[in-house]
Amino acid sequence: MAETSDRALWIMRILSALFLLTTGGIHLYLVFNGVGGILGVMFVLNGIAGIVLAIAMVVLRGRLLQLATVLSLLFLIATLSALLLALTVGLFGIHETWDFTLVPQTVVIESIGIVVLGITTALALRRPVAARVQRAG
């Protein structure tokens, strides 16, 4: 049973890393294709964070992995929330439209990514409990 759980966590970590890379890549793509100013700076930071968190998902273990999964989940929630705010009421004076480059795709990718990272986080956080129960039994 522990082997199945480890395999599921590993698969979810890889999927999570792919969603983080995709999100970061979208933001860097937009910077290289004309988004500038303060929004461009935020997109560069978002791209770097997505790449760093994706790497963390596949290389970290134990408590650091748990921290990385929680931070990655919060990162995608914040990124999608910022986009949705920009699409509705505006964010930092920026008003986004649905027809801007990659906006619909980004909403879909980040929404699915949040679900995937939620599952990954749950698996990573419950893993030590399962290991303790198995050792006690």
Rank of each mutant, 00 (worst) to 15 (best):
R7E: 12
R61K: 15
T106P: 01
A49S: 14
M57N: 07
L84W: 11
V107W: 01
N33E: 03
L91G: 09
E96Y: 10
T120C: 13
D6E: 14
V52H: 03
L83E: 12
H27Q: 05
G37N: 07
A131N: 09
G113P: 08
G90L: 10
R61C: 05
Q66Y: 03
A49P: 01
M57Y: 10
T97P: 00
L73A: 07
L125P: 02
G118H: 07
A124S: 14
G47N: 03
R7K: 14
T4D: 13
V107A: 12
Q105N: 10
A68H: 03
L18W: 02
A78R: 08
V133N: 12
A122R: 12
I77H: 01
L45V: 13
N46W: 01
I114K: 05
L45E: 11
A54M: 06
L15E: 00
T4H: 13
A56I: 09
S81R: 13
A82S: 15
T88K: 11
I14T: 11
L65W: 05
W10K: 15
A56V: 08
A131I: 10
W10M: 12
L30F: 01
F100L: 13
A86D: 08
T69G: 02
A78I: 11
E110N: 13
T79H: 11
M42P: 09
T97V: 13
A124V: 04
G25L: 04
R13M: 04
G37L: 03
L45Y: 12
I48Y: 00
V107F: 08
L67P: 05
I14L: 14
N33D: 06
S111R: 05
F32S: 07
L76E: 12
L39R: 15
T4W: 04
R7T: 11
V59W: 09
I11D: 00
T69S: 13
G93S: 10
W10G: 00
L39G: 11
V115T: 09
T121Q: 08
L60C: 10
P128W: 00
A136D: 06
G118D: 04
L83D: 12
L76H: 05
V52C: 06
G34R: 02
L28F: 10
I77E: 08
Q66D: 04
L18E: 04
T23D: 10
I26G: 00
G137P: 00
L73N: 08
L74D: 09
A56L: 13
V58C: 03
W98S: 11
F100D: 12
G90F: 10
Y29K: 00
E110M: 08
F19D: 05
L15Y: 03
I51E: 01
L74P: 07
L84H: 08
I55M: 12
T88E: 12
P128D: 04
P104Y: 02
T88V: 14
G50P: 04
V115G: 02
W98P: 00
L74Q: 11
L64E: 13
G137N: 04
L60I: 09
R13H: 00
F19Y: 13
L30Q: 14
P128E: 01
N46L: 13
G36W: 00
F92E: 15
G90I: 09
